[in-house]
């Protein structure tokens, strides 16, 4: 699976375990809960279906089908949403069913997407272009060098099959070849990109004038004075931008002090120690700000789900 995103950062604090854990045998009370939820789900679905049918009564059959499908879908989505939220009270079968569905559906989704979006046009389209054109992508461009393209495409095909060998119980070393290719490619592009975008560009962004100037406009003296004098007085003059200068100095000091904290070749004593300590303070402010922004993100995601429940499902507002 694709390496997932920074969304995983907060993890599950408070010792809440990650998804997909082993289930405990269902107790009678939980079985009852499961049964009740299943009955509730079925009733809601039937209710939703009836509502949709009623909504669609005046329209033609095609629209009725779409409306029905949407109504059932919204009820289904609401049940799924509630199913996940029930975990907040305690672990339960309803949550586990939703979690299991999510795992299965997401794995299939990613595989199907990878197949139709990448494997078919970029691999099979070169190995057997006529077949792909006939059955899947009629407009697939015709290559000037189909034979050469096909020969080249055997390399990723072979590497791909070797990668899938990981699923076999024996011959694990076979999958190391494609793994080496993946690691080598990643290292090759990251090495250059890191130097260019993250090392040189960031150093360049740090090394800036520490004293920041700004243009200030002096208003002409009120009353009297010739037009020429007034014009001279109204021209911009360069003055020191106090807060701009503070910001620039803070930026440089911050980068250097945090780097000194990361620099372990010198013992953190004396001036280096003080600089490293200042670096820690900068880092703490950085993390504090990052925390504030993270909280905002999390709240927004929950707000969106509640909006769905209130507005799309219950029709409130």
């Amino acid at each position: 699976m694709n390496a997932r995103n920074t969304n995983d950062d907060a993890g599950q604090p408070d010792g809440c375990p990650p998804a997909a854990s082993a289930a405990t045998p269902a107790r009678p009370s939980l079985r009852f809960l499961w049964l009740s939820l299943a009955v509730l789900g079925a009733s809601l679905t039937v209710f939703g279906t009836a509502m949709a049918a009623q909504d669609a009564g005046a329209t033609d059959a095609a629209q009725a089908t779409v409306a029905l499908s949407k109504s059932i879908g919204i009820w289904c989505a609401a049940l799924m949403t509630i199913g996940i939220l029930t975990f907040l009270y305690k672990d339960n079968p309803f949550y586990k069913v939703c979690e299991s569905i999510l795992i299965g559906v997401s794995a299939a989704y990613w595989m199907v997407n990878g197949f139709w979006s990448t494997l078919v046009p970029n691999l099979f389209g070169k190995l057997m272009p006529s077949v792909v054109r006939e059955y899947a992508i009629p407009s697939l461009p015709v290559s000037d060098t189909p034979g050469f393209d096909m020969a080249l495409a055997f390399v990723p095909l072979a590497l791909g099959l070797m990668l899938l060998w990981r699923l076999a119980p024996k011959g694990g070393w076979i999958s190391v070849w494609p793994l080496a290719f993946i690691i080598g490619t990643t290292a090759g592009i990251r090495l250059v990109a890191s130097i260019e975008a993250d090392l040189l560009a960031q150093a360049s962004a740090t090394i800036r004038p520490l004293v920041v100037m700004k243009d200030s406009v002096l208003a002409p003296a009120a009353g009297g004075g010739s037009a020429a004098t007034a014009e001279m007085a109204a021209t911009a003059v360069r003055t020191v931008d106090f807060w701009g200068t503070v910001g620039a100095v803070t930026g440089v000091v911050g980068v250097l002090s945090v780097l000194s904290y990361f620099f372990f070749s010198l013992e953190h004593k004396g001036a280096v120690g003080k600089s490293a300590r200042l670096g820690v303070w900068f880092l703490m402010i950085t993390f504090g700000s990052a925390f504030g922004l993270t909280v905002m993100g999390r709240i927004t995601l929950l707000a969106q789900r509640l909006e769905f429940l209130f507005k799309d499902w219950l029709g409130l507002g």
Partner: peptide, 10 residues
Amino acid sequence: TGVQVSQLLP
């Protein structure tokens, strides 16, 4: 996203 923005600020 709020989570990722720290990485992008530089």
